[in-house]
Nucleic acid binder design. Structure first.
Lengths: 337, 337
DNA sequence: TTGTACGCGTTATCAT
DNA sequence: ATGATAACGCGTACAA
């Protein structure tokens, strides 16, 4: 900018005023304005974001901390978030938490220190107490996505109605005549825990509590799914349908069933949750609960860096909870008993 | 830092020296050092990276531009890259290209380029000439990953040996007795183009040129795969095996074949390329070419921000090409004719 | 209408 | 052994 000013024979401040469309009055002569703009373009001038940020301007950086970047579902989440952020002129700084608390803490310090304008948490971080404490003491807006919607949490939450989704899944299965429905999901974290609880409640309301062994807690991986399926098949009265807490698990169940010669959906119905893009490409096509990913990402970004972040519309910032509705997507992995 | 200095009754410069372990001499008295450190800790002092960067320090930010963030393969790539970057203390700034927004993207990215210590391109950007020109004029190190390995390119490239991978795939199929092998892949971009060319060359060397209609150019999606399969099945002499340019397409082929009652691998063998994590979970398990993702990411990051980026080890920076070898992973989607 | 001067938080250099 | 000061690039209140 110094160069531009020198080349144009004016002061730095004049250049700054012109290039930033001076918010004050129209006190720049058209002649000077045009000259400076031309020169700036010719010199290929680019504002230095760091210097701007140092002056207190927003960094236009959105920090995204994802709990498990391996999870295929979160890939879609990052995509949606990235699009939404970009639409608002923001860039995404990615950090993965990698499960260990200290690492996550270090990560936060990095993000905070980098002075992101806001931070988005993807996934459940209830157990990372150090990270949360750190985040609370930092004065950046924090929004949690897919973090469950029922338990108390010090930041705004945008998520899916797990109870409604679970009900839709189980209504679908019972509508097909299934009575012995099992649940497979990973250790209790946010959304998964809510789906499991909703499953329990549903069964109690519509029939009886889930039979012993019908709730399998396994890692959210292909291997975890295989392990869960084996356990269920060994039961004296195996289920006729399985509600998988995530599509990743449903994928694993499909594969493991095929390996074991169990025909889907003839011998066993399987329903997932998320509707990741590849869910339409399984064999057979996976019946699942479609997550409103784009809407959740949009709401989250709006809460984090949109105008909503500033004013108090919708109640106190900390208490805000946006819960979006999922929808049933029927494909071919479920059928009548 | 001002506060710390005031509280300790010393000058800022002293504080700075102490907190940065003054690289000069040990000219700070132990007493002062200890006092300042204590106060800094009590006050919760955190260095401000922006100010540091303004002074010329590295930002510890690695820009990653991914061509199509929707591609399931790139999710794994981002993960590997992110891990590698973090191991070196770097954070990842994400940008997606989405093919169309040529100019806007170029502008934005270069804006960011000022902040990033290096930029990693994921996927092929040969057609984004504005972006490349902009990148060249910026003075940040740029490294391209999965960008093909044969055509000239102004930046270092780290990628996979597509010819070797293709040969491994086709050797596997011919070893099973297949003679009518088709190719399905998207429009010619970097790696895909090389795989298609390698396929052509292989067939010519081992038998004859691919029969008419055996090379299908389709979008890299489930729908694209279905479209490709339909076209192949309509042929007078349909292939007995299909080489899919990516696992995403192989997924689609598996699904489309199942929809149409074509049994895999009995009626048709399918082999993919990439070995994305979910490839182990298809029905049947997908035979594919395993991409050395971690190794490529590591090499790319090293080239971008490692010590290698500075010195000229391995020849001139622009001309560097690192090509890693893929390996065949046999599962159940291929069988003897 | 435009120029001058200051400060954002650091670090490097020079002076004490 | 430590303090004072300049400078990084920008925006802006104030002076001209």
């Amino acid at each position: 900018m110094k160069d531009v000013a020198a080349a144009a024979g004016v002061a730095q401040s004049t250049v700054s005023r012109i290039l930033n469309d001076a918010p004050l009055q129209i006190n720049v002569s058209d002649e000077t304005r045009e000259r400076v703009q031309t020169i700036a373009r010719d010199l290929g001038y680019r504002p230095h974001p760091l210097a701007r940020a140092l002056r207190g301007a927003p960094t236009m950086l959105l920090g995204v901390v994802v709990r498990d970047i391996t999870d295929p579902f979160f890939a879609g989440g990052i995509e949606a978030l990235s699009k939404e952020a970009r639409a608002r002129g923001y860039s995404v700084v990615l950090g993965h938490a990698h499960a260990k608390a200290d690492e996550a803490l270090a990560l936060t310090m990095v993000l905070e220190a980098r002075q992101c304008d806001a931070i988005v948490l993807m996934g459940d971080f209830q157990d990372q107490r150090l990270l949360l404490a750190d985040l609370r003491s930092a004065n950046v807006p924090v929004v949690a996505l897919w973090h469950g919607s029922e338990r108390p949490f010090p930041f705004p939450i945008v998520g899916v109605d797990n109870r409604a989704g679970t009900r839709a899944a189980l209504d679908h299965l019972t509508g097909l005549g299934h009575e012995r429905i099992a649940f497979v999901g990973r250790e209790s974290l946010g959304d998964i825990r809510e789906r499991r609880e909703a499953y329990r409640r549903y069964l109690i309301e519509h029939a009886s509590a889930p039979p012993k062994g019908y709730v399998r807690r396994v890692p959210n991986t292909l291997a975890g799914a295989a392990q869960g399926l084996d356990a269920l098949l060994r039961l004296p009265t195996p289920p006729t349908a399985i509600f998988a807490a995530t599509d990743a698990l449903a994928f694993g169940l499909l594969h493991a069933a095929w390996e074991r010669g169990v025909s889907i959906p003839d011998d066993l119905s399987i329903i997932g949750f998320d509707d990741i893009p590849l869910a339409a490409g399984t064999v057979p096509g996976l019946t699942t609960i479609r997550m409103p990913i784009a809407a959740i990402a949009a709401a989250g970004v709006a809460l984090a860096i949109g105008p909503e972040a500033a004013n108090g519309a919708g109640g106190p910032y900390e208490a805000r909870r946006i819960v979006l509705e999922p929808t049933l997507t029927v494909r071919s992995s479920t059928a009548a008993v």
